[in-house]
Each structure stands twice: as C-alpha cells, then as structure tokens.
C-alpha cells in the first residue's frame, strides 16, 4: 500500500465530515430521525400520507447545496469516470441493495456507528469490504 500524499486532504475531509455529522445531529435532535439518504429517498417510492414533505425537503436541501456553494465560488471537482452503462448498473445495484440492507454510507456508516448499532457496524464493514474488493477487481484484475 502506498499513500497518495498529494491527493490526501485531511483538513477538508475532517471539516466536511464534521459538517455531515452536524447535519445528522441536527436532524435527530430536531426531527427525531436518522439522516439516512437511501431510506429517506426510498420512502418516497412507497409514499405514506403525512410522511412525504419532510423527505422531499431533506432531499431538496442536498440537491440545492451546490447552488448555495456557487454563491461563494466555483464548485469543487467532480470527476465521474464510469461509463453510462456502468452508471446504470451501479445505480440499480445501489438502489436495490441499500433498501434490502436498510441503509447506506449515511444511515449505517455515519448515524448507525454514531449510535453504536451492531447492525450498522456489521453493515458498514460489509459494504466497505465489497467496495475494496470491487475496485481491486475492476482496476487491478480487469483494468477497467
């Protein structure tokens, strides 16, 4: 393993992480809910009366964040190398499996670990593991 010291951005990573934690903290302290993106979005696909608007507003906040950012300067780089077919396959897999697994990086990785949930700790280890393996296979075995 070699660490890419040029790409490593410890301070913005910690600061951005703290902001994500602050958002999750505000959401549970004020709304009493877990800031889990896949669960919040997924709930919109089986809408229950009185359980829709807060989901739309939370998602709208995330989607509009880049516009707020633009008031202060240009957006940071977002380099998406995956091809369109690959993005479709990846999106389908992420959609189905985050619903089966009851969460993603935010719900399990941030909120779940923060509340020391054994389910979320296991889930996070599981998706980190297959994330590492998938990138290894793609980059170093298949060369994609």
């Amino acid at each position: 393993m070699t660490i890419d010291w040029i790409a490593f951005t410890p301070w913005t990573a910690l600061a951005g992480g703290a902001l994500i934690g602050l958002a999750a903290a505000a959401f549970v302290l004020l709304n009493g809910r877990i800031a889990g993106i896949s669960g919040i979005v997924g709930g919109l696909l089986s809408p229950q009366k009185g359980d829709i608007l807060w989901r739309i507003l939370f998602v709208a906040g995330i989607v509009l964040a880049p516009l707020l950012w633009l008031l202060s300067g240009p957006l940071p780089d977002m380099q998406i190398d995956a091809s369109y077919p690959m993005l479709i396959v990846a999106g389908l897999i992420v959609g189905i499996s985050t619903r089966y697994g009851s969460g993603c990086t935010s719900g399990h990785g941030v909120c779940g670990i923060s509340r020391l949930s054994p389910r979320s700790i296991v889930a996070t280890l599981a998706f980190m593991f297959t994330g590492f393996v998938t990138v290894y296979i793609m980059r170093h075995l298949l060369g994609i």
Binding site: I37, S38, V41, V59, I62, V63, I80, D81, A82, M86, L87, V89, A90, G91, L92, I93, V94, I96, S97, T98, R99, Y100, G101, S102, G103, C104, T105, S106, H108, R119, V122, A123, T124, A126, F127, M128, F129, T130, G131, F132, V133, T134, V135, M138
Partner: peptide
C-alpha cells in the same frame, strides 16, 4: 442486512457513487 450491504459495496465500488453524493 448482510447481503444488502455486501451488494451496496459492489455498486459503490463500480462507480464511486453512494446515494448522498449522487444527489
């Protein structure tokens, strides 16, 4: 939980997107 999370990691690794950042 376990199969879903294992699956999610595969999708995450294929494109580098999880739900929040994609939005």
């Amino acid at each position: 939980l376990i199969m879903g999370s294992l699956g999610f990691g595969v999708g995450w690794g294929l494109a580098g997107f999880c739900p929040g950042p994609a939005l």
